[in-house]
């Protein structure tokens, strides 16, 4: 029942860890997010040190997103052109974000900024997505919508349309300047690095609402971007901080690769707006949990130094 983890230096019940992988992998396949914002706190709850939890989770997400991305790619749901531009921007943004954190850590008060960014981003994304998809679902019930994103695509114009390098993204069925996903990628990358997460839960709404991509392509493309981000994070963390616990990652990925497949299959049965409202609810639950953690007195006021 127990397995010792050589880097985390602790022993865990492997059934619990495989179960966690399965649950978070399912969400990953369903929504196109890495699930780091859920997995890292869950791992900390079973006694994994925070820095190792975050780095190892990135390793696990490589497996889950590779599995999910492959399935979505076969279904024709991955916009590779869009994904590459977002990823490229994300890498640049990540590098900027890491420097921002370094400067803040030196100046003090980093923890406050990290927590506040987390709460505000999760809160805004969750509330917006919740009400948007709720109204879409209501309309759908009334029988007035077809594909609700189609008419919105025509509204765009003005500034976005005036940018150079206009490109048509066939898979997504949208036309944007190549600069738009690149810049949005940078923006998400900066936030993700500050929060210490992969950024899937910000990237997905960005693709839905700012790039106007259809939900199913958003999920596939999101997994594509998450895959590359997490490959980079895993190698960097392993190389410079020695914080990747390969055994822990193995246990998690045994669960998550299957979870991701189940999620992908389940996702096909659900409407885009139903998916959005589910993700919104999960994001809001996590937001409430973080707010409670901030407001209620912790049971222990000390923790080992290292990482955030």
């Amino acid at each position: 029942m127990y397995m010792y983890l050589p880097i985390a230096l602790t022993s865990v019940n492997y059934l619990v860890v495989v179960g966690l992988g399965l649950a978070v992998g399912l969400l990953s396949g369903l929504f196109g997010v890495g699930g780091g914002f859920l997995m890292t706190p869950l791992l900390m709850m079973i006694g994994i040190p925070p820095t190792i939890a975050a780095a190892t989770d990135a390793n696990q997400i490589v497996a889950a997103s590779a599995s999910g991305c492959f399935s979505h790619w076969r279904l024709g749901n991955v916009d590779i052109k869009m994904g590459l531009l977002l990823t490229l921007g994300g890498f640049a943004g990540g590098a900027v974000g890491v420097q921002v954190i370094k400067a803040l850590l030196a100046a003090g008060g980093a923890d406050f900024l990290i927590k506040m960014t987390y709460v505000v981003m999760l809160g805004v994304v969750g509330i917006f997505m919740f009400f948007e998809s709720l109204s879409a679902l209501k309309k759908q019930k009334a029988g007035t919508t077809k594909e609700h994103h189609a008419p919105k695509a025509e509204k765009k114009g003005g500034f976005f349309a005036s940018l150079p390098m206009q490109t048509h993204f066939e898979k997504s069925g949208v036309t944007h300047s190549a600069l738009v996903p690149l810049v949005l990628g940078v923006f998400v990358g900066v936030l993700a690095a500050i929060m210490g997460v992969g950024g899937g839960f910000i990237m997905v709404p960005v693709m839905i609402y700012m790039l106007r991509m259809p939900m199913h392509v958003v999920v596939g493309t999101g997994l594509f971007q998450v895959l590359f981000t997490c490959i980079e994070v895993t190698i960097l963390q392993a190389y410079s901080n020695h914080t990747v616990d390969f055994f822990l990652a193995l246990l998690l990925l045994i669960g998550s690769v299957f979870g991701a497949q189940i999620g992908t299959a389940l996702g096909k049965k659900l409407h885009g707006d139903q998916l959005k409202i589910l993700l919104a609810i999960i994001v809001l639950v996590v937001t409430v949990k973080i707010v409670l953690e901030l407001v209620l007195e912790p049971s222990i006021l000390l923790s080992y130094a290292g990482g955030h």
Partner: peptide, 11 residues
Amino acid sequence: IAMMAGFAVGV
């Protein structure tokens, strides 16, 4: 190994 595991299960 993570990528191989992911693709293998996908297949």
